[in-house]
Structure formats: structure tokens, C-alpha cells
């Protein structure tokens, strides 16, 4: 009895760190093996940005005005595109069920998955955005902020989007539904993300925008994992 108690007290503590690290490593490795899945959102991002000058006008002055919004919306859509596969493969091969049965709290385990998603989607998008900004003749002086706001913002997008992905993972055609669920929730991040870039262009104070983006991320970090875990339980048991 005493032995069992000691086990119960000590094991999960060590186990959690190990499990988190293992999930992180596993997901990273899996995604690195399927490189096209990592590349697709980036190619999509570049493609959509290419379409805008064709659709609007190649006029540099006009493009410069709309560039922050275009870059943000395109990055947001690219993140959305990648969400469907966030839990799909693990759902289909039964790994998610194993995660559910594991002694570690599911809410923390999904954080590892979301972190990998951001590392391989949000972060590359943020790093790539300045390159596309050049093609849209985004004025100098806002490139750093563009990357920073996207890096901060896409972390929130990954977290919020993961709720939608978890809710629709059990559905055969969840893709369109996923965008319907997630896009309205993306509005605040989009507003403050583009706001930051525009403030940089106008030479306004930036700190407030970035602080709010950070606050949104902190809120999402606190609340989203529980919602993701609850949603995954529904999708798997349902």
C-alpha cells in the first residue's frame, strides 16, 4: 500500500516531463518526415500573395497601403489550411486514443502538439512574411514588426485553431466547417496584428499592440488547452 502511494506521488511528476518531451520529439520527427505538409502552408502563403497584385493592381503605392492587411490575412488563411491535419493522422491511427488513456493530463499533452504546429507553421510563416512584404513594396521599417507580430499572433491562431481542429477531427468532411468555426474567433488577433504593422508604418507607439497580442496569447494559453482536451474527448468517444 505504502509502495503504491509512493509510486502515485513520484511517477507522474517525472512522467509528465518525459511524456511532453517525447510528444514534442515524436511530432517534430513525424512532420519533418512529411516535409510537404510543412511546405504546403508556406507555398500557399506565397501563392495567395502573388494573386493580390494580379487581382488589384501592380501599382506599388496602392499595394504598400494594403500590404499589412494582405500579409496578415494570407498568413491567417495559411494557418487555417494547416489546421485540418493537426490531429487527423493521430486520430486515424489511434495515437490520440493512447494519449487520452495516458496518465498525463491531456490538456498539457496537446500543448506539445500545438507547440510543434506553431514551430513548423506559424514561425516559418512569420519568417517568410518580410520576403513577401518586399514584393508588395511594404515600406521599410515595418519588416521586423511584421515578423514579430506574426510570430506572436500565429501562436494564438494555432491555439484557437486547435480547438476547432479537435472538434472536427472525427468528421469526414470537417474542412469547411473548421473554417466556419475558427475564422470568427481569429478576428481580434487579425485586428491587433495588422494594427501593430500599421502603427509601425505610421511611426506610432507599438508597445500597446504587441502587449495586447501578448495578452491574447496568454489568455489562449490559459484557456485553449482545456477546450482542446474536452473537444478531443468528444471527438474520440463520440
Amino acid at each position: 500500500m505504502q509502495h503504491a502511494e509512493r509510486l502515485a506521488v513520484t511517477e507522474p511528476r517525472g512522467g509528465l516531463g518525459v511524456a511532453l518531451a517525447a510528444t514534442l520529439r515524436r511530432d517534430l520527427m513525424l512532420l519533418m518526415r512529411r516535409r510537404s505538409e510543412v511546405m504546403n502552408p508556406l507555398v500557399f502563403f506565397a501563392l495567395v500573395i502573388t494573386l493580390f497584385p494580379l487581382g488589384i493592381s501592380p501599382d506599388a503605392e496602392l499595394l504598400a497601403i494594403v500590404a499589412p492587411g494582405l500579409l496578415w490575412v494570407a498568413a491567417l488563411l495559411a494557418t487555417l489550411l494547416s489546421l485540418d491535419s493537426l490531429f487527423r493522422a493521430d486520430f486515424e491511427d489511434g495515437c490520440l486514443e493512447q494519449m487520452l488513456l495516458a496518465p498525463q493530463p491531456l490538456a498539457l499533452m496537446v500543448m506539445a502538439k500545438v507547440a510543434v504546429h506553431w514551430l513548423l507553421t506559424g514561425l516559418p510563416l512569420a519568417l517568410m512574411a518580410p520576403l513577401l512584404g518586399i514584393t508588395l513594396s511594404l515600406p521599410a521599417g515595418s519588416y521586423g514588426i511584421l515578423s514579430l507580430s506574426l510570430a506572436l499572433g500565429t501562436a494564438s491562431l494555432s491555439l484557437i485553431g486547435a480547438i476547432g481542429a479537435a472538434l472536427t477531427v472525427g468528421l469526414a468532411r470537417g474542412g469547411v466547417l473548421l473554417s466556419l468555426l475558427v475564422l470568427p474567433l481569429y478576428v481580434p488577433v487579425l485586428i491587433f496584428g495588422t494594427g501593430a504593422v500599421q502603427a509601425a508604418l505610421l511611426g506610432d507607439a507599438l508597445a500597446a499592440h504587441l502587449a495586447i497580442l501578448g495578452a491574447l496569447l496568454a489568455g489562449a494559453l490559459m484557456l485553449a488547452p482545456w477546450a482542446i482536451a474536452a473537444s478531443l474527448r468528444i471527438s474520440i468517444n463520440g
Binding site: I163, L167, A230, S231, I234, G238
Partner: peptide, 9 residues
């Protein structure tokens, strides 16, 4: 399942 999913959302 639909009920619980809609509740979470």
C-alpha cells in the same frame, strides 16, 4: 456528441 461539441463551442 453533437450536443457536447456545440456546448464547448
Amino acid at each position: 456528441s453533437g450536443s457536447r461539441a456545440a456546448s464547448v463551442l
